[in-house]
Design a protein around this nucleic acid. Structure first.
Length: 883
RNA sequence: AGGAGUAUAGCUCAGUUGGUUUAGAGCAUCUGUCUUACAAACAGAAGGUCAUAGGUUCGAAUCCUAUUACUCCUACCA
């Protein structure tokens, strides 16, 4: 048998769909014929600015999801006659790029601090040339129809300029200010470090319980700390809110051990009663949480560390000591003076700089901020006025929550790769500041604003660069030329993942409103997150995303795109596993094979239909029109692309292949011709499927009918409109035919009826017309049916099927009867279920309150149900009795 | 710690304003079938106390409250 299979496969090998060949061909064709290109014209535009992936990126499943949704919407709207424009881009990604390039330079023994800023930037550009396009090529492989001529990079000259303009504009309008912020500091490289450059390692640390005496009493309080050397920087003692002892000590002061400085005792909601002693020392200069508390309580900030990690002169015995040696020294002193009550071990994390392997130190630094209060108020009414809609709805609350709690935005980063902050200082006199794009402008401004004459040599530009988001928040407003902006802006939709709703989406809206007085997009479409089978988010760093190139190679881009929609239901998270591609792959295979069948229907003869087959043609006509309408409804309402794709999957696989084609195939054998009408339906189906699976549909489009010319590709064809009325009666009829078929197939299996058996049946029904109309179709699927009698009382065989209230008697006299006991068991099981159901309805109907309060139509329905069920039970009971 | 979300078949999810549903799909499972487009196919079967506990109602998977578990975002662990 296996050999036979192999033989068959080999014979059909040229019939197999070769996705690699076909996908490459069509992408090239689309590009070469400028079919993705968009130029302003008199059509209505449909524009999407694609979220620019990082240049450090490699395509992972999350991108595939995002990018595919983009392309489906774009292809759909292109076919619907819009002037569509999908703008691709890449993001310079300051931090991750700088870290990545530093890493690669480190292997060559090159260090950025040694080679200097200019040379380093040169290396970054070299790196970008080499690796920056990987992700774009992968996007192309997926078939995404971007206008590649509009490719935009956040470090392009024009974009760079725009970012600087935005900063200067905000600065001149007093939205940008300088303030202190706590950041992590690398004491060895003397630089700030970002979260991405920090490794967290679990470790066991010591927790010291230290006695602080009170000033106006002989009591004391115990404070737990892991960093005893910082007690000399204490400015307060803090306890939790419900501490019952607090009222008795709140007007008192605590004395710092050894140095005996008096500090106030406060309480704050951020302190937990469960950890440590319930009292915390507040050292604002050296701890993130303490810094926040100090700000809330107006406490001073007392720095005790030098930038290289040694202690300063706050307390003479520790002056100049390394922070870890200082800890030992002060612990010894505290023990000697009886201030240490106990020392405990506890599990925590230490944060280590990837650059130098030293433990990082919280440090207060001067940074640039954007005032957000007024800016965020610009978007407060957008949702209520429907200027922007969010899909799915569940993110509306998240959006509002973010907007209400928005904090000022720290936009400076101590890096070299990125947009350099356009601020100029007078050397050695930092209080003279101007915002300017270049030294030339700066010199002028110093003269105008401060009346100071300066030259290139005594001014300097701020060394830091801007947060990457400060460039990407301008994305939708700065990717167009001035002329194009009028035409394309605002864009129609933004498609993105939930985690950057705050970082990016809200900020883009703010920028759009502030700089252009118009929202940047009308709809926010939030996709799910792609996870692996264990629920972990798929990402590069975890390495749990499958290699997309390999997946495309194996299954084809169409399959990968389709599987996204099989999985992404309701925009929920996707648990991805490679095996899920198989369903989509077999669907593609199915489509290809169905076309082989359809092409075999081709004939020179004039079309001529068998009278019975017209029903199926009319039915499919209604069905396809209904699908067109249903799809349009989905596209108009919420763009739940998974729902629409599954609808298409079902009509193609179940209605078209399993039903329509099976019947057509049957009549074709009898020399009737159905090619033209079938091609008409196929074309409509291809059009509707094209946005999801563009390659195979385009290929088939050119292989069928009279369409064998490349001048009329599917990608730019017109999207199908509903063209005739929907006959709901026939759709309903066919559903009943389907039910009947199921019952008969069941019956066949139960009674072990072989395909050679020919059986007579007698149908007793009030609706004989229905059976007479469709019996020819039923016979195609159930070839066992021999003579059919209607309401013939002389023919009442024992075996009987109940369908609704119709009875279909089947003569099994020519056939061995099946095992009676088994059959009776089955019938009893059925009766039991029905009796249970009957009871529940009886209970309902005998409930007076139900009869009094429930609406009439419900009561009538329940009564009808009751009588129907009673009859069914009787019917089954009768069968048992007869056996 | 704050905010949001989810809980329905082995898995991924539907389930319209509470009553046409005896809670449905698709995968996976099991059974049957080489059938001239497709065995990566076709046909069939089995599988569920709708997370738990209360409440509202004539009637709850659906509305309300509490609990539990998980996920995400933000901020963190003295």
């Amino acid at each position: 048998m296996i050999i036979l299979n192999l033989l068959k496969q080999n014979m059909n090998i040229n019939k197999l769909y070769d996705h690699k060949l076909i996908e490459n061909f069509w992408y090239k064709y689309w590009i070469n014929n400028n079919l993705f290109k968009s130029i302003p014209n008199n059509k209505i535009p449909y524009t999407i600015a694609m979220p620019p992936p990082n240049i450090t990126g490699v395509l992972h499943m999350g991108h595939v999801l995002n990018v595919t949704i983009h392309d489906v919407l774009i292809r759909l709207n292109r076919m619907k006659g819009h002037n569509v424009c999908l703008i691709p881009g890449i993001d310079h990604a300051s931090i991750s790029t700088e870290v990545k390039v530093m890493q690669s330079l480190k292997d060559k023994n090159i260090y950025k601090d040694i080679i200097g800023r200019e040379k380093f930037i040169k290396y970054v550009y070299e790196w970008k040339e080499q690796y920056g396009n990987i992700i774009l090529n992968q996007i192309k492989k997926l078939g995404v129809s971007c206008d590649w001529d509009r490719l935009c990079f956040t470090m392009d000259e024009k974009y760079y300029n725009d970012v600087q303009d935005a900063f200067i504009h905000l600065y001149n309008n007093k939205f940008i200010y300088q303030d202190y912020k706590m950041v992590y500091w690398d004491t060895k490289s003397l630089n700030t470090v970002s979260d991405e450059e920090i490794i967290q390692e679990p470790c066991v640390n010591k927790l010291y319980y230290i006695k602080y005496n009170l000033l106006h009493s002989n009591k004391y309080i115990i404070v737990a700390t892991s960093r005893p050397e910082t007690i000399i920087g204490d400015v307060a003692i803090c306890t939790f809110i419900d501490n019952k002892i607090y009222p008795t000590i709140k007007d008192n002061y605590a004395l710092i051990p050894l140095i005996n400085t008096k500090i106030p005792i406060i309480c704050d909601h951020s302190i937990s009663s469960k950890f440590g002693s319930g009292y915390v020392k507040i050292t604002p200069a050296h701890d993130f949480n303490d810094y926040e508390i100090a700000k809330r309580h107006n406490l001073p900030v007392k720095n005790i560390l030098n930038k290289n990690g040694t202690l300063n002169d706050t307390y003479e015995p520790l002056n100049g000591l390394n922070r870890f040696i200082a800890r030992k020294t002060i612990v010894d002193l505290l023990i000697k003076n009886g201030h240490i009550i106990k020392i405990e071990n506890y599990k925590t994390f230490k944060k280590i700089s990837k650059r130098t392997n030293t433990i990082v130190e919280p440090m207060i630094t001067k940074q640039w901020f954007v005032k957000m209060k007024y800016l965020s108020s610009l978007c407060s009414t957008l949702l209520d006025n429907n200027r922007i809609t969010i899909y799915p709805q569940k993110y509306v609350n998240v959006y509002k929550n973010w907007l209400n709690n928005i904090q000022d935005w720290c936009i400076s980063r101590q890096l070299w790769w990125g947009h350099r902050i356009p601020i100029w200082y007078l050397k050695n006199q930092k209080k003279f500041i101007v915002a300017a794009k270049n030294s030339h402008q700066a010199i002028n401004l110093f003269k105008i604003q401060y009346n100071i004459d300066v030259n290139e040599n005594n001014i300097e530009q701020d060394k830091d660069v801007l947060d990457t988001w400060f460039s990407s928040w301008l994305w939708p407003i700065k990717i167009f030329s001035k002329k194009d902006f009028q035409y394309y802006y605002p864009t129609n939709i933004i498609i993105t993942s939930p985690e950057i709703l705050f970082f990016w989406i809200i900020r883009m809206i703010i920028a759009g409103l502030y700089f252009c007085q118009e929202v940047p997009f009308k709809k926010i479409y939030i996709t799910g997150t792609v996870r692996d089978k264990r629920g972990k988010k798929m990402s590069k760093s975890l390495g749990n995303s499958p290699d997309i190139n390999k997946l495309i190679e194996k299954y084809g881009a169409d399959s990968i795109r389709a599987s996204i929609f099989f999985l992404s239901k309701n925009n929920n998270d996707i648990m991805f596993e490679e095996s899920y591609c198989l369903q989509a792959y077999s669907f593609i295979n199915k489509i290809w094979n169905s076309v082989i069948l359809i092409e075999s229907l081709k004939s020179d003869k004039k079309d001529e239909y068998h009278i019975d087959s017209l029903k199926i043609i009319h039915w499919f006509n209604s069905k396809i029109n209904k699908t067109i309408i249903d799809l349009n409804q989905i596209y108009q309402n919420d763009n739940d692309l998974s729902k629409s794709f599954v609808l298409l999957y079902k009509i193609y696989k179940e209605d078209f292949c399993s039903f329509y084609l099976e019947i057509i195939k049957f009549y074709t054998k009898k020399q009737y011709r159905y090619y033209t009408i079938t091609i008409k339906y196929l074309k409509i189906l291809l059009k509707m499927l094209h946005p999801y699976i563009p390659f195979i549909t385009e290929e088939i489009w050119h292989k069928i009918g009279d369409n064998k010319n490349l001048l009329n590709p599917l990608i730019t064809s017109n999207y199908p409109q509903s063209y005739s009325n929907i006959n709901n009666a026939i759709i309903n009829d066919m559903k009943n035919v389907y039910d009947l078929l199921n019952k008969l197939r069941n019956f066949k299996i139960k009674y072990n009826i072989s395909s050679n058996d020919r059986l007579d049946i007698n149908i007793k029904s009030l609706n004989i017309i229905f059976y007479k109309k469709y019996i020819s179709i039923i016979k195609i699927f159930i070839q066992n049916i021999n003579n059919v009698f209607y309401n013939d009382d002389s023919k009442k065989y024992n075996e009987c099927l109940m369908i609704k209230n119709d009875k279909i008697y089947i003569d099994l006299s020519k056939k061995n009867k099946i095992d009676n006991i088994k059959n009776i068991d089955f019938l009893y099981k059925k009766i039991n279920i029905l009796i249970k159901y009957k009871e529940s309805i009886k209970k309902k109907l005998s409930n007076e309150l139900f009869l009094k309060k429930a609406p009439d139509n419900i009561i009538i329905k329940e009564k009808k149900k009751y009588s129907d069920i009673s009859e069914k039970i009787n019917h089954y009971q009768l069968q048992i009795d007869n056996d």
